Amino acid sequence: MTTALEKALATIVITFHKYSGKEGDKFKLNKNELKELLMKELPAFSSKRMDPTEFQKIMSDLDHNKDNEVDFQEFTCFLACVSMGFDEFFRSCPKLPLPGK
């Protein structure tokens, strides 16, 4: 039986590869692929209009090796930061039941 964490990890990998390689390197996200992923998979990013300068800042911050693409390692670092932000946010909320509990 697959655990919730195993399913979550598989979802991260599958989601990355759903968008990577539509253009160019199939193991990296270029600017257009990253923007599409953020808009479709993380609605918080699409709920506010991201101007080109703001998006370029995000891309630059994620692209540690400065190759103008985001590889899986860079993407997972980003997800770790987003997860930490969610954790901080939910620490200030009243006790909410976790999924599956």
Rank of each mutant, 00 (worst) to 15 (best):
A8P: 02
C77A: 11
L96E: 08
V82F: 14
T15Q: 12
D67S: 08
T53D: 14
S92Q: 14
P99F: 07
K57I: 09
I12W: 05
S20G: 06
F16S: 12
T3N: 08
S20N: 04
P94Y: 03
L29I: 05
A8R: 05
S46K: 14
P52C: 04
M50V: 14
A8H: 05
F90N: 02
L79G: 08
N68K: 15
K57V: 12
F72W: 07
L5E: 11
L98T: 07
F45L: 11
E74A: 01
R91G: 08
A10Q: 15
C81E: 03
K57D: 12
K101R: 01
S92A: 12
L38W: 04
R49Q: 13
R91W: 00
L29G: 05
Q73E: 12
S92R: 11
L42F: 15
M50S: 09
K57M: 12
T53E: 15
E69D: 07
F27W: 09
A10G: 10
R91N: 10
G85T: 12
R49H: 08
M84T: 02
L37I: 04
K7G: 08
A8K: 09
R49Y: 04
A80G: 15
A10L: 14
Y19P: 10
K28H: 06
E41T: 07
T11I: 03
G85H: 06
A10H: 13
P43T: 06
I14V: 13
Q56V: 01
T11K: 15
D71W: 06
D67G: 07
F86T: 02
E69C: 12
T2R: 14
F90Q: 00
M50G: 01
D25W: 05
H17V: 03
A4T: 14
F89P: 00
G100L: 09
F78Q: 02
S20Q: 06
R49W: 00
E74M: 06
L9S: 13
M84C: 10
D87N: 04
E54R: 13
V13R: 13
F27A: 12
P43F: 05
D63I: 04
D71H: 03
N68W: 02
D87A: 03
K40G: 06
V82G: 00
M1L: 13
I14R: 15
K31G: 05
F75T: 00
P99I: 02
D71L: 01
R91F: 00
F75I: 03
D51F: 09
P94W: 03
K18I: 00
S20I: 05
K95H: 10
T15V: 11
P94H: 13
D67M: 05
F90H: 09
S60F: 02
D63G: 06
K18H: 13
E69M: 12
G24Q: 04
L62V: 01
E6T: 08
F90M: 06
K95S: 13
L38G: 02
